[in-house]
Design a protein around this nucleic acid. Structure first.
Lengths: 146, 146
DNA sequence: TTAGTTGCAAAGGCTTTGCACGCGC
DNA sequence: GCGCGTGCAAAGCCTTTGCAACTAA
């Protein structure tokens, strides 16, 4: 019954299970990521601000980077936009990125397994992972809502 | 006999054909990109420095951005590394990026046409293009040459 | 107790912007 | 001649780093 995306269990449990110390900022950041599946550091900060005494930008970055290092979160870096973080890890899904507003949506991999995972010629590289990004315009921006 | 990647014709011809004015910095930047297929702004600057009187960082950025806007070049933004520019455009090839040193190599698309070009569910997005990036360690870095 | 974390402050890398002069067309 | 492009300078955004005090375990 365990969720692979660490989405249902208690934040504290998840954090500790990842081998990290449980602190208020970390718990708040994890909750923020659950509420905002593709949040930037700024958005996370805004989200945790009301819950903490003195939210600091660096603590947010620390928590986010620690999560990524611990395998709890995944870092997305849409070209031209600040980096985003998401909790879904290891399930081979891809992203739709709006070139106008930078919003991101998940798309499950076209093929079930790993479609483009094997380049025609690795050129000597040891491939760790393949990332597929679809660039386009989201419904809102297309509608002129900017 | 015309090259689609603007790789063989005179730099001036290519630049003007793109609707841009021909200037020394632009010609030098285009040549630099030809010599270094995946160059950063810094690398381009270093490359054009000897050829120009007073190479300025901004002129390089201007030229590069103009090229991208004119469809002459393509911008690559490997997460965590400065952006790179390449002249190959519109031929649906992808990239191998070294997570250690940031070096980039081209890989032709696995399938001839457009493999992952169609997401399972566009979520209302108007897709412009699909980008596939293979993250890994290049031969040099793997060998410990750092 | 003791190492890992926070918060504050400041720096850092990369890229863009503003404006006067000069050059391409 | 007109307008775009250059060069110089400075600012901007996002992210990281350094260090003392604190707290989770």
């Amino acid at each position: 019954m365990h969720a692979h995306t660490a989405g249902t269990e208690d934040a504290g449990t998840v954090i500790r299970a990842a081998g990290l110390r449980l602190t208020d900022p970390r718990a708040a950041v994890l909750d923020a990521l659950r509420d905002h599946p593709h949040a930037s550091a700024d958005q996370v900060l805004a989200e945790v601000a009301p819950k903490l005494q003195h939210p600091s930008v660096q603590s947010v970055y620390n928590a986010l980077n620690d999560f990524v290092a611990a395998g709890l979160a995944r870092r997305i870096e849409p070209a031209g936009h600040p980096q985003l973080f998401e909790l879904r890890v290891g399930d081979n899904h891809h992203h739709l990125v709006c070139t106008t507003c930078g919003s991101v949506r998940d798309v499950d991999c076209v093929v079930g397994e790993a479609p483009c995972l094997t380049p025609s010629d690795p050129r000597g590289f040891l491939i760790d992972e393949a990332e597929v990004t679809f660039w386009g315009t989201c419904a809102a921006c297309a509608a002129g809502v900017a």
